[in-house]
């Protein structure tokens, strides 16, 4: 029993070490040539454009539900008109980054793990190396760059959809006027919130991209291994998104306000 725990801890530490090494090597490769521009553009398209619908829908329904819920709660304090403030502040600071990142973990993290995983188990990664290509530059850098840069962009889109949905609900359901809603949306926002809402998704996007690639590249054992890698990537990336957000929030609050 103790031996098993020991083995498990060792394996976990090794995994973390390998992950950190990957992140280090990616950082090195991002600032040096050669770049695979075509692959970078393709990944920006696949990750950015490909996630638009998912992220917009998530944002829209979250904003709508948030407006309905908070409308009711605020009624108890006779403060229904503040609904715009609540929707914008909670979306931009917390829910927008986290929910977008969770969607990306499911859609993009799993995709990377599946794609790189099947390349790993069919020796395509080795074939790349044998043909003189560094898989890190060709496969990992484009994906990590795309997820890191597109996460904040997609988060802003999710926020926009959420605040718009909040407005629709406020006007149709809560009887709050359009001008009151939008004034409150602005009232609720500080510059620090905007920064927080942009910096968080950068970090979360980086986590999703590197975890997806790392888990994919270390896939072993045929199609079963690819399946395991895909599941692991989603689980690990999702938990990390929430954990990293938790630790990032107080840090950013101290720095930004």
């Amino acid at each position: 029993m103790l031996k098993q725990v020991e083995q498990w801890v060792k394996a976990a530490l090794l995994e973390v070490q390998e992950y950190v090494q990957l992140v280090g090597r990616v950082s090195g490769a991002v600032v040096t040539r050669p770049y695979y521009y075509r692959d970078i553009v393709l990944q920006f398209e696949a990750i950015g454009v490909g996630s638009l619908v998912v992220v917009s829908l998530t944002g829209f329904f979250t904003g709508a539900a948030l407006a309905l819920q908070t409308g009711q709660t605020l009624d108890r304090f006779g403060a229904r008109t503040l609904v715009g403030q609540l929707v914008s502040a909670s979306m931009i600071r917390e829910l927008g980054p986290v929910l977008t990142a969770l969607m990306l973990a499911g859609r993009v993290g799993s995709g990377m793990a599946a794609e790189l995983g099947s390349m790993a188990v069919t020796d395509q990664i080795n074939a790349l190396r044998a043909l003189g290509t560094d898989p890190l530059r060709k496969l990992v850098v484009p994906r990590v760059l795309a997820s890191t840069v597109m996460a904040p962009v997609l988060t802003v889109i999710a926020d926009t959809f959420a605040i718009t949905a909040g407005w629709i609900i406020s006007v149709t359901n809560l009887g709050v006027s359009t001008s009151t809603y939008w004034t409150q949306v602005q009232e609720g926002l500080y510059l620090g919130d905007a920064w927080q809402g942009l910096i968080k998704p950068v970090v979360l996007g980086l986590v999703i991209g590197t975890v997806g690639c790392h888990v994919g590249l270390s896939a072993r054992g045929g199609t079963q291994g690819v399946g395991r890698a895909t599941t692991n990537a989603v689980v690990v990336a999702s938990v990390l998104v929430i954990a990293v957000d938790f630790f990032l929030t107080p840090l950013l609050m101290r720095v930004l306000y």
Partner: peptide, 18 residues
């Protein structure tokens, strides 16, 4: 990478880029 320019490897199952 430089040494590999003189080596060609046919992988088991081909390992073509799909």
């Amino acid at each position: 990478m430089k040494i590999r320019t003189d080596l060609g490897m046919v992988f088991q199952e081909g390992a073509l880029f799909d």
